[in-house]
């Protein structure tokens, strides 16, 4: 009996050791899995944006103002700013969202609602964090399915599927953990860029107070739950 236990333990050790040693290798890079995903994301992002049908604003001074904030955040946080494709859209809703392959959509309603650049930087930082943490593809993969996404890029599925994807990314929140991760990351970005995080918290607080009155117009808020709680932990973050 002792022999069996000993041999069984050795077998288990070999198994566990085998897994441990094999995890030392970067299989994702070795098998180019990440590059395959990147290509799908790139194709999907371009395709969605080219067929979205949103009313994009001209690249005037407002565009430059938003772009300058993104540049500042990117430069301070070693993010490749060239990857970010900013789109300002004429829409009264207070909303901003990220599409695949670093397409960032900002509604004019948000720009009118922020009191200063710090507040806007908070929202942009949050969306930038969703992009950098690969939340966009994670969410789409989970809710739409990777097979559907690939079908969109190959042209098997057309306009309706694309509209559904845009609708999902612009009107529904990521899950609670991803939202918090994006907030935490956004605060880091703000700190590195020398922007006061209290502006971001103030924005959330202000909209949180208005939440009961005009929920429909405050899309960004209604898709991001517990805004006052978020404002609280943003202020308390180390």
């Amino acid at each position: 009996m002792r022999k069996i236990v000993f041999q069984g333990l050795i077998l288990l050790l070999v198994l566990a050791g085998g897994v441990y040693l094999l995890t030392r290798m970067d299989w994702i890079r070795l098998l180019r899995i990440d590059r395959a995903t990147e290509k799908v994301e790139q194709k999907l992002g371009d395709l969605i944006w080219s067929q979205q049908g949103l009313d994009e604003l001209p690249k005037d001074s407002t565009y430059k103002r938003v772009d300058a904030i993104i540049r500042r955040l990117c430069a301070a946080n070693q993010i490749d700013q060239k990857r970010v494709k900013l789109h300002l859209v004429e829409n009264g809703e207070v909303n901003a969202f990220a599409l695949p392959d670093y397409h960032m959509v900002v509604y004019s309603g948000l720009l009118k609602n922020v009191k200063n650049d710090g507040e806007l930087a908070g929202v942009l930082g949050h969306e930038l964090a969703h992009m950098e943490l690969a939340h966009v593809m994670k969410k789409l993969g989970k809710e739409v399915g990777l097979s559907v996404l690939i079908s969109i890029t190959t042209g098997e599925l057309g306009g309706d599927a694309i509209k559904e994807v845009i609708g999902m990314l612009s009107s529904s929140a990521y899950d609670r953990k991803l939202e918090k991760d994006a907030d935490v990351q956004a605060v880091k970005y703000l700190k590195q860029a020398g922007i006061d995080r209290n502006d971001f918290a103030n924005f959330l607080d202000r909209l949180g107070k208005e939440e009961a009155g005009i929920p429909k117009e405050l899309s960004w808020l209604s898709t991001h739950p517990d805004s006052r709680e978020r404002a609280k932990y943003i202020r308390e973050m180390e």
Partner: peptide, 12 residues
Amino acid sequence: GITNIYVAYLVL
């Protein structure tokens, strides 16, 4: 999704 530990386990 496809993680490093998943591929490592599959190889094993």
